[in-house]
Write a protein that binds this DNA or RNA. Structure first.
Ligand SMILES: [Mn+2]
Ligand SMILES: [Mn+2]
Ligand SMILES: [Zn+2]
Ligand SMILES: [Zn+2]
Lengths: 134, 134
DNA sequence: ATGAACACGATAATCGTTTTCATTTAGGAG
DNA sequence: CTCCTAAATGAAAACGATTATCGTGTTCAT
């Protein structure tokens, strides 16, 4: 009874299993890696559904997506829903969520000064975590 | 008398034309866009060669490469060799080179605070330039 | 001028991701 | 609970950017 349909979002076995896996895994993984893990644990979920579910969760903001240097997409369920970035260990993938209000303002300012609108940005910090450093 | 083979780098008509185009165009463009521009001006260069040439120039440092949010590669011959970032129009590729010393220091600090070493980062700002906004 | 190494490019192959579409399922109405 | 239908699934095919092949053409040191 409404003019616009927001988002149906039905609870299916597949979505439940994808969500559960993302809950456990705390690193950035590709859709195919996640699909592989699901199969390992016996969950029967099609790769297509994994992609679709991840895509939906990214749109919802439940999941964060980034890309490897090769351009492959990586997904991760982040703890905070607010806009943030990541500090990632290039060895083990251990990730720390970070925020930088000052930096955010700076990007807006710079883009605006040059007449750019509809601004977006990507920032990733890579390093070697203390555990991997030894 | 060297253990490693640096790079032959022969001068061919194709490489000359790709280099010339990169000189003129001061924006981030995809390999296919560059290839299209070459064909427009009558230069007969294969797409494969455009890709190969760009890849080589990226390795040499002559060309900067980044990716669109869609994961597509963008290439550009930058004016400054010093570390910098880009403000890119997602429509036409018009690019502004930017520096952010404060932001640079911030990334170092954050990474250090979390015990990460050997720090590196990527930052790209995307927007719609004033010309494409209309 | 020669020729071996290098480069070109049409074509096929990769490979991550998306689209198709026939079939199944969730979940609200009755 | 039963029905109905829009939503979801997934096997298969399509897509699209990039890379690998490999026979042919070019460069450049000798
Ligand atoms: Mn940000
Ligand atoms: Mn920087
Ligand atoms: Zn690590
Ligand atoms: Zn533009």
């Amino acid at each position: 009874m409404n003019g616009s349909t927001p988002t149906p979002a039905r609870t299916t076995r597949q979505r439940t299993e994808v969500t559960a896996l993302l809950q456990e895994v705390n690193d950035f993984l590709t859709a195919q890696q996640l699909h592989g893990l699901l199969r390992e644990r016996g969950a029967k979920v099609g790769l297509t559904t994994v992609y679709r579910t991840l895509q939906r969760m990214v749109e919802t903001g439940e999941v964060d997506a980034t890309r490897t240097p090769d351009g492959e997409q990586l997904f991760r369920q982040c703890s905070r829903s607010r806009h943030h970035h990541h500090l990632v260990c290039r060895m083990c993938g251990r990730t720390v969520e970070i925020e930088g209000p000052a930096m955010e303002r700076w990007t807006e300012k710079v883009a605006d000064q040059h007449g750019y609108t509809d601004i977006a940005h990507t920032l990733e910090i890579f390093g070697t975590c203390s555990a991997c450093a030894r």
